[in-house]
Design a protein around this nucleic acid. Structure first.
Lengths: 145, 145, 145, 145
DNA sequence: TTTT
DNA sequence: TTTT
């Protein structure tokens, strides 16, 4: 009956968003995001980087493809979803993704110069669209990330 | 350009939601929420309770008034907002509230029996409404909590 | 230089925690956690359950093994980590886990009856510093901000 | 019995941290933090800024006083606490603060030049346990989940 | 594959 | 009182 599934990330895009238009006109975007943590190990600074698979649907995908690029710092809020797919050898595999529910660009304005009206917190439309996330992703279980 | 203002609470309602209908038909609900923390002090268990002022607008207010009651356990996500108002003696005071963006009822199903279709995660409509939060709250700076 | 990798879950344990003691005396516990989301699809209520692999280390693993059991409702905070391993056929696989940083048991007290001194916010050593927070602030109620 | 009280903020310091040393040697630091939200109102871009009172204790206060300054962008995680105090006229007042539990500096390295070894996720003692997480998991890459 |  |  109840549950909370929430992910909060701040990190840099490893690549430009990759955008796809599914049958029916639904837009989906995805990109890898790196979150780095620095800690001390035996007096030395060690950096540990974790890579996350970010997926965005519909309006949020479109906004992301417009404003986000490789290297940008971004705050992302979303939920975890693990889905299975078959690789080229027909082996069943699992991948865990973060389905974004909203995002906010961080850092200097100059980082986002190409956007004349930089949106801050993509909310309204993007969140509505998200409600339909389950349908399209089911139809498209073999979506390559 | 950027900013995140997010609050996540799990706690029990201290009272039933209090519902008001503003001019223009906007619904606003509010209630106190208690979050308790237990810690050790000199070998003794001490419970520390913190009270939060929760405010919900429009669709979210209506759902809350239907499904939430005093004593229920609830997950609330929202943002902080501090606003000023004048008390009866015309003294300017400040109050910090959590403007809910969504909520989820936790605990046993029997706790929510009165609801035939218990909603889990109020999202769509509720989030849209939230976009207009600033207007009504400005019109109503003297809203008693 | 910077990064945030945070997961917040509220869900039910799918199994009792499985505890292992590594060489060197380190304790590690793990269990699957289900988070459910209910939404409307074509006017019907659909429940979507997501399973998460939770891993806990050291003190947190020990507390978890003592107080958590299959079916219990729990709040978990942690971070995402994807690691690779070889399966029985020597095929390299990936799994994404949530490394817990603290947890709190939710639900009725009776759910945790076996624990005479139900801890609220379990994070073992990690939270010791935090536990003394109240003292100084009490001594200093007039702290000018 | 249970409760979660968590605040997540990303914003800019409005002032340098103000540091105090209490009797007993406890360090406490505080500063105002601004989180800004931009939204559309009647086709115009409106910026709404919220100010938060951040308080840090002990080790975290010391790290903050060393590395944070007015204008810096920072991620802060903490909990809400409302406390009462008497103002100069002996009137009882309330103030809601965010007691920081850890913070991470965001933005360009040049923003933190004065720190030769910029720490990433500062939470002093509170995170020591966490720092050794990586070791054991590496030793145990084949940990069956 | 990012960033510092 | 910050930032874009």
């Amino acid at each position: 009956m109840s549950g909370i599934n929430k992910v909060i990330l701040v990190g840099h895009l490893g690549k430009d968003p990759e955008v796809r238009h599914l049958d029916g006109g639904v837009t989906v975007a995805s990109f890898p995001l790196a979150t780095s943590e620095t800690y001390n190990k035996d007096g030395k600074r060690v950096e540990q980087t974790e890579w996350h698979n970010i997926v965005l649907w519909r309006g949020l995908a479109e906004v992301a493809s417009k404003y986000l690029q490789k290297g940008k710092l971004v705050y992302i809020e979303g939920k975890l979803r693990t889905r299975s797919f078959e690789d080229k050898e027909k082996v069943k595999k699992y991948v865990t993704e973060i389905v974004a529910e909203n995002f906010t660009m961080l850092g200097r304005k100059s980082d986002f110069e190409q956007s004349p009206t930089t949106p801050t917190h993509q909310s309204a439309e993007a969140k509505i669209e998200d409600e339909f996330t389950i349908g399209p992703s089911d139809e498209n279980g073999d979506l390559p990330f």
